[in-house]
Design a protein around this nucleic acid. Structure first.
Lengths: 360, 360
DNA sequence: CTGAAAGCGCTTACAG
DNA sequence: CTGAAAGCGCTTACAG
């Protein structure tokens, strides 16, 4: 370390006013005996610089330990190579994994990720987006389709590309990358219907500021309506995303009449809670009741009754959203998958209803 | 939306060369009939501007929809109000929660979070830190104490403050905010020793590029050595962080002679795997074997045998790390807690060893 | 292939 | 309290 520091050849008094080691492009140019323009070119367009100068410049950069100033670069080029992402939360594994995938993909393209969590609050999301725009992000990744009413207009005016992730409806107005929540949930519901279930309950995720959760409920209604069925009021309960809530809501559902023969859970934690509570209450799954989940997490494959779930490919979604955005920013044609149909993983927790149960 | 767009009073031809709506500080100044200096002051030091002008300026800003240019601001002030954080991964809940807490705390101070995942790779981490420095971050949050050998020298030379999170040893060289991993794990081991265990096995987390995992193993050795004990070679197995691995490693341990009476797991997922496999194998917990975990996750309170665990306060750690950094950057004295002793949550999965078991 | 110079959009002593 | 002007550290036509 001491050696490292001593190796920095730096004329006394060269220290600039504020922070850092004060090594600038100018110092590199001087050390290499060229103009700043040439140094700039040697980095950004090496082809335009003769091999000899290029080498001298590279050497000077190494010797001085110059780190380019991103702010100056951004100001001069009007490009930041930064992308902002606002997730509702990182407390659920899917968004955390998506965030990591976004960062990784962006890094591959030379971009940096700015991250914020809106906590499902549209006002806060708007404020965070504004901040990101102030920071000069080249693009934005948002989750879901419904946002503050001013959001789209603001971004459009600023001409900043953005993408809605974790959704894919057929609607106009905005690029979506993710599952068709409604269609996916309809498919999961149909799966239960085909098993013979007719009395289906729902442990829904709160739809507050969550258009995806809303779409999923519609998907359930769609599939049921085709057969002239619907979820009874007492069979529709709502939680957020803790195991504890899943347990409590299962208990509540199990106390209803008629008893449901199947329960659809709006997210993984609610489903895990429901499964665990069923076990704890001596309710046999799937003999007494089938339990299925929107979204799949690790533990689901390891519970005594493994959980039938729709696997939402969060990493793929994150990766594709990042790639699409880079394509937009750079005017490139990058291959992007827009719709990500969740895979239905049929496991232990679902089966046909009891013979006697479903003829109430 | 259309209304919104139409409301933007913008003289034709005023559009600037590249991107956005081209509204700059200059336009605001012109519209308000003041100099750019006054507009700047009205925002950054309102006290210096007369009420009358302040109002005219605020109005002009609203009307034009001006968004300040962060790059220009950063260039002029040499401050970015951005903090970089490099986590090993976001796949584990603790880091994800910490990241969210960091972002939230920073936001309260007006800072933005730049995020990257190093995937436990020191080279990659260094590259990510360099990128962050190029972007002009005002400070950096890293995880653990051991990093690329060039990292500290680089940051010191650039005079960028940084903090090591999720660690707190007594050593010199760097500010640490987190648990003392060694001490914490020694405490967990002592807890088992006091219950009477003498044949203790370890499902360790890989120590590749992970000084915290290393410290934890030392903590176990410390506590055992005090009683002249040690972990037998066949009782020391290593995984990463999946439930699957935890299950397999439990099986492997259970096949050893002598059988351990207690198992310490290096992270939550390994512990959940071990618990689940014990159940699946008909091994009674804690009657046949006690299982304890470093780190606590939601599911642990809900498994048939709830899991005794050390609760690492990831959110507190993230919040304090962020606050300390802001204090450094702004030369403020913010209250910061450096050591975060994990809480030992004694639950079902630990108890005294069987009478007959521990006299091999 | 290279350099001199203007400019990116802000902030901030300095002078009044 | 306010303005004219220099400067932050880069990039990029333009001219040679």
């Amino acid at each position: 370390m001491t050696g490292e520091r001593a190796a920095t050849t730096q004329p006394a008094g060269a220290v600039r006013k504020r922070g850092g080691d004060g090594v600038g492009l100018r110092d590199v140019a001087r050390a290499a005996g060229v103009s700043t323009a040439t140094v700039s070119r040697a980095i950004n367009a090496p082809d335009l610089v003769s091999a000899a100068l290029r080498e001298r410049i590279t050497l000077a950069i190494d010797r001085l330990g110059w780190v380019p100033d991103g702010a100056a670069k951004a100001l001069a080029t009007r490009r930041s190579f930064a992308i902002g992402a606002v997730f509702p939360t990182l407390a659920t594994g899917d968004f955390a994994r998506a965030a990591a995938a976004v960062q990784k993909e962006l890094q591959g393209f030379g971009y940096t990720l700015l991250l914020a969590c809106s906590e499902y609050d549209a006002e806060q999301e708007l404020a965070q987006v504004r901040k990101f725009v102030e920071r000069g992000v080249d693009g934005l990744i948002l989750v879901g389709r419904s946002h503050h009413e001013k959001l789209a207009a603001f971004l459009d005016r600023k001409a900043i590309p953005y993408v809605f992730s974790f959704v894919h409806d057929g609607l106009e107005g905005g690029v979506c990358i993710g599952p068709d929540n409604r269609k996916a949930m309809a498919a999961l519901t149909n799966y239960l219907l085909e098993l013979g279930h007719r009395t289906i309950a729902v442990i829904a995720q709160s739809t507050d500021n969550n258009d995806r959760a809303r779409a999923r409920l519609e998907g359930i209604r769609d599939a049921l309506a085709v057969r002239g069925l619907a979820v009874r009021p007492q069979h529709m309960v709502t939680g957020r995303w803790t195991i504890e809530e899943g347990r409590e809501l299962f208990r509540r559902l199990w106390a209803t009449t008629p008893r449901p023969t199947a329960i659809i859970c709006g997210n993984a934690h609610l489903a895990v809670g429901a499964i665990i509570e069923s076990q704890a209450s001596g309710v046999a799954v799937p003999a007494d009741v089938s339990i299925v989940s929107y979204d799949d997490i690790d533990i689901m494959s390891h519970l005594p009754a493994t959980v039938t779930a729709l696997r939402v490919p969060g990493e793929d979604i994150g990766r594709n959203a990042a790639r699409w955005l880079v394509g937009q920013v750079e005017g490139r044609e990058l291959p992007v998958q827009f719709e990500h149909m969740p895979e239905l993983l049929a496991r232990d927790s679902s089966g046909p209803p009891r013979r006697d149960a479903d003829s109430p």
